[in-house]
Design a protein around this nucleic acid. Structure first.
Lengths: 186, 186
DNA sequence: GGGAAGTAGCTTACTCGTAAGCTACTTTTC
DNA sequence: GAAAAGTAGCTTACGAGTAAGCTACTTCCC
């Protein structure tokens, strides 16, 4: 009835590739998965599997946490990203839909939907671009500016809380540096 | 016309929190974002923002890469996850839909859709559970077993390629350990 | 200066997930 | 051993994204 074989011992040296569940570190769900793979397919590398497996899970877990934070302000993560992009672009908090969809790696169709929702909520305003009649300018309203300032603080507090509970300042800096190198390879 | 303000210099000490774009490290899109925030909201912590920003982007980039790998075998990432879970559970490569949806953190409705598609493709088979008439048993077919073995190898090769191009073995192990600690806090 | 090519934003059709509700069956409890 | 509660899997309604195609406008280029 167990959901899956639970590998009792994360076998000291199960894979061809070195150190996985270091002696002191407690084993987690990802260790269980790599151990299962090592049992049935010992030819597979477990380190990359573990790294990306954890990245994927952390991204998902923090994403859900962020959703909850932003829900307090009546917006979703997607909407937050839009108003946050406007906010950090500085005064007058104005960008075009195209700039927004490019920055957020979203199709224009998806952006139209987000802007509709935010405009209806009174957080931003669409106005014609005076220099190009094809285009629009999207600006944060007073209400939008106030809301984004509150919600970014709340969201960041959540991230900070989890990060500092897990890692000290040195480790966090080290992690950031390693992730920068990894991201550069993508 | 630029999509966003491009911060020329990642200012040596812009934020209250220490070392961000280390002297040698090239600055990336995430550095640009944190620099923008530091300019308009200098009270915000930039380290957590950078860590989670990079985690999110790496997860997304590798996700897209995986989609391409699996597309060669005619499946998507979601379908791959299902047959991979069956594969690593070991012989007889059989689990219930409930076990699968629990393991993959998916609703039962979502699992029904994935199973429909995989069954139609001949990669797995649904049969009644002999001990519980409410339940089903989902098993990999010969074809499914062969396909998952090929696709897991291809996917892992892609992950290994990117990881080893960015980090040496020590760094990768270090990253894995830091991520384990961070994941544990979620 | 006029036609070709490019760009901006919106709409439509489709995909794939969730949430909630359904039926069928099993387990618990008195 | 019958009623109540729980569990398994499917269906339906809905949400939010993509891809492709549309119209309107601008820019390029001869």
């Amino acid at each position: 009835m167990n959901a899956a074989k639970t590998p009792q011992t994360p076998t000291p040296t199960p894979a061809p590739t070195s150190a996985e569940p270091l002696p002191d570190a407690p084993s987690d769900a990802v260790d269980a998965i790599t151990a299962q793979w090592a049992a049935v397919r010992p030819d597979l590398e477990t380190v990359p599997m573990a790294v990306y497996g954890r990245i994927y899970r952390i991204a998902r877990a923090m994403g859900e946490r962020m959703d909850k934070e932003y829900a307090q302000f009546g917006i979703g993560r997607g909407e937050f990203d839009v108003i946050a992009t406007l906010r950090r672009s500085g005064e007058p908090y104005t960008l075009s839909p195209r700039q927004l969809s490019a920055t957020l790696m979203l199709t224009t169709g998806g952006m139209t939907g987000r802007l509709d929702k935010l405009e209806k909520a009174g957080l931003l305003r669409r106005s014609p671009d005076p220099t190009d009649r094809r285009g629009l300018r999207v600006s944060l309203t007073e209400k939008g500016l106030a809301l984004v300032d509150e919600s970014v603080t709340a969201g960041l507090a959540a991230q900070t809380e989890v990060l500092t509970s897990a890692l000290n300042a040195d480790e966090a800096a080290q992690l950031s540096a390693l992730l920068r190198k990894l991201l550069a390879a993508h």
